Amino acid sequence: MDHLFQQLLDHAPDAILIADRDGTIRFWNHGAEQMFGHTAAEARGQSLDLIIPEKLRARHWEGYYRVMASGRTKYTTGLLTSPGVRKDGSRLSLEFSIVLLRDAQGDLEGCASIMRDVTVRWQREKELKQRLAACESGAPDPAA
């Protein structure tokens, strides 16, 4: 059964990554390679800053270290949304879930994230909101 789990992790189309308590990337699957443009060899051992837009890093690390210290997060259910950054510097919109990872004694070792690129959907929703606002205000449709 272990080989089936390994295949799931390695070949899932979503990005699956594991970071330790310090925020160092320890696992990076093929989906993460495709999404962010960094190979597993390039990403492993790097800080999560690799995929976090610079202006959001301080806020991210404040929350990350708070979770690592307390061992608790309110984000273990539902999806989080956040922008990310690819190797080429382009931005993407992400939805992701968090799994806290513990050792055999229950001590927090880090966390895993399962991420999906929702950039196309986010852009489409933004355009629809703009068109709706234009219709409601009587302004010409920006898409026309």
Rank of each mutant, 00 (worst) to 15 (best):
F5H: 07
Q6R: 11
Q6V: 04
Q7N: 12
Q7Y: 12
Q7V: 06
Q7S: 11
Q7D: 09
D10W: 15
D10H: 14
D10A: 15
P13K: 08
D14P: 10
A15Y: 11
A15P: 08
I16L: 14
I16S: 04
I16D: 03
L17Y: 14
I18M: 09
I18W: 15
A19C: 13
D20K: 05
D20P: 02
R21E: 06
G23E: 03
G23N: 08
G23L: 03
T24H: 01
T24D: 00
T24F: 02
T24G: 01
T24R: 02
I25R: 00
R26E: 13
W28A: 01
N29Y: 13
N29K: 12
N29A: 03
N29D: 11
N29R: 05
N29S: 11
N29P: 05
G31L: 02
G31R: 00
A32Q: 06
A32T: 08
A32N: 06
A32Y: 04
E33V: 09
E33R: 03
Q34E: 10
Q34P: 01
M35R: 02
M35A: 06
F36G: 00
F36C: 07
F36I: 12
H38D: 13
H38W: 15
A40E: 12
A40D: 13
A40R: 08
A41S: 15
A41W: 07
E42Q: 14
A43D: 02
R44S: 07
G45D: 06
Q46H: 11
L48D: 07
D49W: 07
L50N: 08
L50K: 14
I51E: 00
I51F: 01
I52C: 02
P53W: 01
P53T: 05
P53K: 04
E54S: 12
E54C: 07
E54G: 07
E54Q: 14
L56H: 04
L56S: 07
A58I: 00
R59E: 12
R59N: 08
R59V: 03
H60E: 10
H60C: 04
H60V: 10
W61L: 01
E62L: 07
G63N: 11
G63C: 05
G63M: 08
G63H: 15
Y64T: 00
Y64R: 02
Y65F: 14
Y65L: 14
Y65M: 10
R66C: 10
R66Y: 12
R66V: 06
V67A: 15
V67M: 15
M68N: 03
M68C: 05
M68R: 07
A69H: 09
S70H: 11
S70L: 13
G71Q: 09
G71P: 07
R72M: 11
R72A: 13
R72P: 02
R72F: 13
T73H: 12
Y75G: 11
Y75E: 15
Y75M: 12
T76S: 13
T77D: 08
T77R: 06
